[in-house]
Write a protein that binds this DNA or RNA. Sequence first.
DNA 1: AGCACGCCGACT
DNA 2: GTCGGCGTGCTC
Length: 814
Amino acid sequence: MAGPFAEVSIFSALEKTLHYAIPSELNAGARPGARVLVPLGRRSATGLILARADCPPPDMPPEVRLKPILAVLDDAPVLTPDLIALCRWLASYYFYPVGEVLQTALPSGATNAPQVFVRLTPAGEERAETQRDEIGELLHRRGPTALAELEAACGSPRGFRQKLRELENRGLVERCHEWRCGLPGPKTVKVVRLAGEPDPGPIEHNANLKSLVALLRGADAGIPLSVVRREVRNADYWLRKLAAAGTVRVEEREEERTFRLAQALPEAPPPRLTPDQQEVFDAVSPYLASGPFQPFMLFGVTGSGKTEVYMRLVEETLKRGRGALVLVPEIGLSTQLEALFRQRFGERLAVWHSGVPEGARHDQWRDILAGRRTVVLGARSAVFMPVRDPGLIVVDEEHDPSYKQDDHLRYHARDAALVRARLLGIPVVLGSATPSLQTIHQSRLERYRPLLLPRRILDRPLPTLEIVDMRRESSRARILSHRLRTALAETLQAGDQALLFLNRRGFATCFLCGVCGAVLQCSSCSVSLTYHQREKILRCHYCGKEEAVPERCPACGHAGLFPLGFGTERVEEEVRRELPDARIVRIDRDTVSRPEDLVESLDAVRSGRANVLIGTQMVGKGHDFPDITLVGVINADTALQFPDFRAGETTVQLLMQVAGRAGRGEQPGRVILQTYNQFHYTLEAVLALDYERFCDIELQSREQLRYPPFARFLKFLVTSRSEAQTREAARRLAALCRETAERFDASGRPAAVLGPSPAPLLKLKDRYRWHVFVKAWTSRDLQDFTETVLSGARSDPALRRVQLAVDRDPMMSM
DNA sequence: AGCACGCCGACT
DNA sequence: GTCGGCGTGCTC
């Protein structure tokens, strides 16, 4: 069979890619990266061309004829070659079907399946005239009808499929597909414009008409109809009259969807770089024009001016005619950073995160694709943005756990950024005040080049840190220690601001029965319900389910229920009681549901309308509050309790991050850490503000225990609705892993298997969950091992009854 | 993922 | 006798 052919990945869970013939009329458009409509069995599907080939795949018997591509859906490719390569890499590394990786990489809607329509053939039309059957009748009356619609309209849905197929086989009906692009088109607005000189007579007689004409005279480019309607009474009537006379025209105009979350900053000249910043800039900038691939670790204390360095590097990249990609944790967006980038890059900037409305996101994606926007600032999934000729990738707060997606494709955006940079042969800057141990390790091995910003801008002093041993506090000071309460009062007295941090929202962490000791649990998850006092409701923080507080304990029937433990809502109440004059703003998922709320609350703090900020992680990152001089960490131990070998690392990173919020302005800052583990090595490191010392200790212990980065982890997650089936499948999987590991050990490539074990969160959204852990010394071994296990798992009946997810380089908790 | 095929229990 | 349950396997 003669070429050309295309290797196509269907947008679905298909493990393999499929090959199609390219009809000559589609030859020019059928380029790698373009979406296509293809036949698949007896239906059709959408997919994307990964590659072109001159001969059919070698493993294919020569007698089979490849089906032809039905249509090319894009004028120009929607994925660049580096992104196609990245998606293939991710599919293989994370053991995930390529077609579903593509769905992650493309904006929602771009991977919609084609809609199937059914219609009568000419023979069918003819027969419908004489013989009446329900389907024929319906189609005769309605014309081509969407399959689902036809089934719904059918009075007897029983046997519908079969009846339809019979008609199809007899050549009376046929299927056709219409591919509706699924992407919102450009937004259009109706615009009103003067097209001639209106008759002056009536204008003098009618005030409405007069104001209408005056309004239109003021704007040659035209005025949106909505504005005209708002400004002029009876506008529609007069517009119709003027339009009939030909003196105004109403036309449709395409408009970019706008959204503004961050405040607009006035234009300002960029500040002069400090010598430290200049040194970093000089180290990276030779790579911007033509690479080669080089990772940099930018290790800069909070307040050392990393953002300015990023912007300068991006600017330099643009000067070389190339684009740039800047990744930031989701939570830090829609705020200051965005405002700064917008101020610097204006219309060249695209912003990509969950707070951007879908329509605006599509407009920006189109703009990026067309090369109209050359700088992308975005969260995790922005790593897939099809920037034209990228010359630089920046990953800010590189250590942040939110870069790891924890469902579907469980990828790490920082690692994906590294791979993409390698594929492109460009530099990648990993920035953090507390780099991940993996990155520290790589820089010590000289695979990443370390760049340091050891000083705060203007040599502002680092904050002072103090520890309060909560075990020695009186029982009425369980939330706010004596020391923190006093410091808080002093701070407010002095007219400064304070931040109180607690990584737990709600009022009480659980409701306990004082008679039988039962804790109220979510019916769908194995966690206790959190009490929210303002709404007087119990809520599950994992599935969102809500319940009213019962009068009596559901277990023993006694009326002895009381709240236990505390969250941010309770802290707020406590502060209110202790300091009635405090102007409090609380920022957590309960008080901030939309991005606008966050902007609003942050603004209240920045403008000084509030002087106490209470919050969860949301406040920890990326926000600059110049007047905060006191930071209180209500419970510095929470992160330590997670069942994760990284718990120490996460704790230090989080606490140093929060501590960095203090004293970024003129005033020096003070940080008070309340803890029950005052001599824990993580807290000692935080107290001394000595991150590197912590890394030394932690890396040494990881090496001894053979934990990452000295080994590689992988987690199998088995889930199903049946507890017994899940347990059994996990047992089978662990056995399969052990058999495989034995074979590997025999060839001198050890892999260790741990488990099966019930997940710390045994039940989540009504699904039971079990884990099996695998540890291997090299990435290569882990790859081979997992492929072997997965192919074995496919033929195990117990495992086919459950869902099996693979999480490579997992965040181990829950 | 769909959508076939195929092989066993409750209905006209 | 058939309708339809969902296990199993394939889609270029």
